[in-house]
């Protein structure tokens, strides 16, 4: 039985906290003028969205996917190719990519819903690798390892901006979309079904939960949102190739971000991105790529062995302690 999530019902204070966080995030480009940090911030937003998307199928439904880079890649390539070949704006391309990835996710869901534990993991891994091999070798379509360069054409109506703050708001919009859908799922009937299936499939079925339908819908939504992140990533970086979109390492990192933050919770993956991405970036700059990944590997091991509920569990614990401290302080005043 995986991850504990204490309650799906959320306290009303959460709404206020969300509003405050959103306002703060909206103000970021006004405060942070440094290009390096804003660039890093946008990367965090995209990774937070991607990890949130992964969490819908892995955290809620318990299917640990190691193939999500495939959906990210489908999103990135679909919107970029539609733009390059047919001149269709990425604002539309992002949804086409999401639809395509959603269909692919549903297909994968249909063929893997019965598989458990390592078998599911290996099936998604193989799926991801198949997509990567196709991506590298279908040169007529994807240009293979040469990659695709998005020419700076047309500006905002093509999701291509001359300044970083516009990308920040695009990234923020993406995050609000994915987190919003994640919260909606968590509170909906589907959310309860997924968690029930994750905790005990036989019991869930005997209570009337339909396995295939629930898992396939979750897989499709998760894939579609990962594709949205891919499309935004493509317009942000303006260059995509198989290594930066469909590689196995990317699938691992998506999982890593969500796990470090805390699987099965809405905010865990976001927190994970806020920790892992800057940490990796700073380490890469200071000590190089190898040591940065050593730290990633170490972090992943320590988290799953010692704190499988992720950083969010620690944050919650501190929050509870603080509240108790404040409560007792108030009592002392009175």
């Amino acid at each position: 039985m995986p991850i504990k999530s204490a309650s799906l019902t959320s306290p009303s204070g959460q709404r206020i906290a969300f509003a405050v966080a959103l306002v703060l995030l909206l103000c970021v480009p006004l405060v942070i003028r440094d290009i390096y940090w804003l660039d890093l911030g946008i990367t965090v937003l995209i990774w937070a969205s991607l990890a949130t998307a992964w969490n819908i199928s892995a955290g809620f439904a318990g299917g640990l996917s190691l193939g999500h880079a495939a959906f990210f890649g489908v999103g990135a390539y679909t919107s970029s190719l539609l733009f390059l070949r047919l001149g269709i704006t990425p604002w539309i391309g992002v949804f086409v990519g999401a639809l395509l990835a959603g269909a692919l996710g549903a297909l994968l869901g249909v063929i893997t819903f019965r598989l458990k534990g390592p078998f599911f993991v290996l099936a998604t891994l193989a799926f991801g690798i198949v997509v990567h091999i196709v991506n590298v070798n279908w040169r007529d379509l994807t240009r293979g390892a040469a990659g695709l360069l998005l020419p700076f054409r047309g500006g905002p109506q093509n999701m291509l901006f001359p300044n970083l703050w516009a990308y920040w708001y695009t990234g923020l919009g993406l995050l609000v979309l994915t987190v919003g859908i994640s919260i909606a799922i968590e509170r909906s009937r589907l959310g309860y079904y997924l968690v029930a299936l994750r905790e005990d499939e036989d019991a869930a079925r005997s209570l009337g939960v339909r396995v295939v339908r629930s898992k396939v819908v979750a897989a499709a939504l998760s894939a579609a949102l990962a594709a949205c992140a891919g499309a935004v990533y493509a317009t942000f970086i303006q260059y995509i190739d198989p290594d930066s979109t469909t590689q196995f390492e990317l699938s691992v990192q998506i999982a890593l971000v969500a796990i470090v933050g805390g699987m099965g919770t809405t905010l865990g993956p976001v927190l994970g991105a806020a920790i892992v991405i800057p940490l990796g970036e700073i380490l890469r700059a200071r000590v190089g790529g190898g040591p940065a990944l050593v730290v990633y590997g170490f972090l992943l091991m320590v988290i799953v062995l010692a704190a499988p509920n992720g950083a969010i569990a620690g944050v919650r614990l501190i929050g509870r302690r603080l509240r108790r401290l404040m409560d007792s302080g108030r009592k002392a005043d009175a």
Partner: peptide, 22 residues
């Protein structure tokens, strides 16, 4: 179930809600 199968990580209320939702 004879060998009980609660949704261990969920609250008692959420466990019963799953039944009502279907």
């Amino acid at each position: 179930f004879q060998v009980v199968k609660p949704f261990g990580g969920l609250t008692v209320l959420d466990n019963v809600m799953v039944g009502a939702l279907t």
